[in-house]
């Protein structure tokens, strides 16, 4: 038997916690024991076995954590493949699978569509910025004028007051009744957190598109928002959706399309058709908002 003191040092040595002197002393002490070498070997064997048990038990825990990931592994792989981030061997693995697994091939195709949608969104966003910069460039700058005789100044002042009144009314209308102001007043971004259940790749794709459309609306990229919401409204909702979810998402799409079209400045008739559909259903989640929006769209300040 090894005394506890030596056992403690032997374990410290195994953990790399002994310095050279301590190591030498331990060696000497073990050499003095008749069975020192055998005991050292047996205890090391025991500790290795403890490591193996730890490896196994902790491995089971990590394997359980991994389960939650397996549903999204293919989506992630598809993305890396499309970005050309995989080794040549792994690209080949994906291509072979694509050829033999129709579900995976479909996933790749959908991922490509989604990527292209996001690229369009980025391009549109940049285009909007360019337009805004162009507008800012064209704004008139202040000019200096020479003073006029008094009788003319009175006329100028009167005209200025009139201009100020018109400008004030115009400013008020712009601030409160422009397309953008109305959308800002009525639009509330819904929670876009992840509510997926495990394994629902279809649901994930749907919610990602839903979030992208709302982000476009939030960013005032109305053309993209209209396109994305309309694409979603023609798509079948995920099978996993409960009845309440279905109603909520459908109603939100109806309402968001109206707002996106208002923001985009689409013709009144086009907006009205969709608005009337909401107003005609008192159970619609956005019924009240639709009634108020109709009133604002017909306001005096918009003429």
């Amino acid at each position: 038997m090894l005394p506890n003191e030596l056992l403690m040092q032997l374990e410290a040595l195994r953990a790399g916690k002994l310095n050279e002197d301590e190591h030498k002393k331990l060696r000497l002490a073990l050499d003095e024991l008749p069975n020192g070498e055998e005991e050292t070997r047996t205890f090391n064997q025991l500790w290795n076995a403890w490591d193996a048990l730890h490896f196994q038990e902790q491995g089971v825990k990590f394997a359980e954590m991994d389960l939650a990931w397996q549903a999204t592994d293919d989506t992630e792989l598809a993305e890396w493949y499309m970005k050309g981030q995989l080794s040549a061997a792994n690209e080949q693995v994906i291509e072979t699978r694509k050829a033999n697994d129709p579900a995976f091939a479909k996933l790749l195709e959908e991922q490509a569509q989604l990527n292209s949608g996001f690229h369009d969104l980025k391009d549109d966003d940049f285009r909007q910025k360019l337009r805004k910069w162009e507008k800012d460039e064209k704004k008139p700058t202040a000019k200096l004028h020479t003073l006029r005789p008094n009788w003319r100044r009175l006329g100028v002042i009167a005209a200025s007051v009139l201009v100020l009144m018109v400008a004030g009314a115009n400013w008020f209308a712009q601030q409160n009744y422009s397309d953008e102001a109305i959308v800002a007043r009525f639009y509330k971004q819904p929670p876009l957190g992840n509510t997926m259940s495990a394994g629902a790749a279809e649901e994930e794709a749907y919610l990602t598109s839903f979030a992208a459309a709302h982000e476009a609306l939030e960013d005032k990229d109305f053309a993209s928002a209209t396109r994305l919401f309309e694409a979603l409204s023609t798509q079948l909702p995920p099978e996993d959706f409960k009845e309440d979810d279905l109603r909520y998402y459908q109603d939100n799409l109806d309402w968001s399309i109206v707002l996106a079209k208002v923001g985009e400045g689409r013709p009144e008739a086009e907006i009205d058709v969709r608005l009337q559909r909401i107003i005609g259903d008192q159970e619609h989640t956005y019924y009240r908002e639709a009634v108020a929006l109709q009133k604002d769209l017909g306001s005096f300040w918009r003429w």
């Binding site: 592994d73 792989l77 890396w80 981030q85 995989l86 080794s87 061997a89 792994n90 693995v93």
Partner: peptide, 9 residues
């Protein structure tokens, strides 16, 4: 590891 090695996913 998928980028730098030949090991499959």
């Amino acid at each position: 590891f998928l980028k730098h090695t030949n090991w499959p996913p």
